[in-house]
Design a protein around this nucleic acid. Sequence first.
DNA 1: GTCTATATTGCGATAGAC
DNA 2: GTCTATCGCAATATAGAC
Lengths: 205, 205
Amino acid sequence: MQYGMGRTGVADNDCRNNLIAAAVPLFAAKGLNGVSVRELAGAAGVNLSMISYYFGGKEGLYAAMLTEQFAILGRLEEIQQMEVDTLQKFELYVRATVSRYRRNPYLLRFYTSELTNPTACFETIIKPAIKRVVQMLLDTFTDGLDHKKFRDGLNPADTVLALAGMINFYFLLEPATAELVDHSSERDEELIRHIMDIFTRGVLR
Amino acid sequence: MQYGMGRTGVADNDCRNNLIAAAVPLFAAKGLNGVSVRELAGAAGVNLSMISYYFGGKEGLYAAMLTEQFAILGRLEEIQQMEVDTLQKFELYVRATVSRYRRNPYLLRFYTSELTNPTACFETIIKPAIKRVVQMLLDTFTDGLDHKKFRDGLNPADTVLALAGMINFYFLLEPATAELVDHSSERDEELIRHIMDIFTRGVLR
DNA sequence: GTCTATATTGCGATAGAC
DNA sequence: GTCTATCGCAATATAGAC
C-alpha cells in the first residue's frame, strides 16, 4: 500500500496516514477529549511522539482528520449547478446524504458532536461546511419559487431545514431506535422515496 | 425534597443541589470528558470532595444530572392518552418539543451528545427515554391508520421519524445556521404551523 | 457534612539518541 | 524520521482532621 523508497518519489509517510486512519473511528466514538494520544498511537501502530511531529499535538491530528472528512461535503454544491428540475435537486441532495452516511458512518458523528460540544474546529471547519450546504439548499429553493414550482406561503429556511432534518435525524437516531425501526440499507430506497413523497406533497402548489 | 437541618424541615443540602445545577450547563457545553471535577466544584461554589461524597465521583454526578434532565421527557407519553384527533396529537408533540427546548436549552445537547458519543448513561437513561417517545409516536400513528386518517403506503417508522426530524434538527443546527436562518422564539408559532403544514399535506389521504 | 492535604494515576508534549 | 525515556502537569479520588 505504501512504498517509501528514496528515488521513486511516491508518497511515503505511513505514519501520518496511519494516524489519520486510526483517529477517525476513535474520535468519532469518543470525541476529542475521550481519546488519549497513547490510544491513538497504539491503534495506528506508530510511536506516540509522531503525533506531535506530524500534527503538532492531539488537536492538530483532530483538525487534520476533520478537514479530510468534511472535504466530501463540498461536492453537494455541484447539485445546484445541474440541469435538472428543482425537486430532483432536492432528491439528489437526499440521495447523496444517504449514500455519504452509508459509505462513511463516522461523518454524522463528527457533524453532531461538533454542533453539540464544539471544539476550536467548529468555527473553522464544521460551521462553514454546514452553512454552505444550507445555502445551497436555500438557493435551490429560491430558484424553484421563481419558477412557481412551490405553493405560496412557504418559508425557505423552514422548508429546507425540514427536508434536511428528515433525512439526517433518521441516521442520528439509529443507535437508540435500532430495535424499534429497521435502519438497514436495504430499506434506503424506500426511505428516500418516502421522505420525498412527504416533502413533495408538502410543498407543491 | 431533602431535609437534614433540625427543626425547620426546609430543603438543606445546598451542596448536592448546587452541584447538579452547576453541572447542567458545563456538561452540556463540553461533555462528560470535557469538564473536570475542579471546574464543577468551583462553579457550584462547593468543595471538590463533595462530588465523591454525594455522587461517588464525576460520572455519578453526570448520571444524576441526566436522570433529572430526562424525567421531563416522560410527560410526552400523556399525549397519546388525550381525547383529540391523531393529527392534533402530532401537533401537540411538536409544540411540546419546541417549548421544552425553549425552556431547557441544554436538553437537546445531552440528547445528541449521548447519541453521538455514548457514555454508560446511554443504555440506562437516554436510549430508553428516546425509545418511549418513538414508541408513543408509532402508537399514535397506528391509531390514525386504523381510523383511515392517512393515505395508504405510508411506513409508520419513516413517517414519525420524519416529523421528529423536522423539529429536532431545526434546533440542532442552530449553532451553525444562526447567521443564515432566524431561529428566534418569536418565529416558533410560524415554524410549528409550517412543519405541521408540510407533514399534514404529506400524509393525509 | 465539610474541609485540607495528599495519594495515585494518567495525561500531552518533548529532549535527545540514533 | 523514528525511537526511548522522561518531564511537568492535571486528572480523579480519598484519608483523616474537624
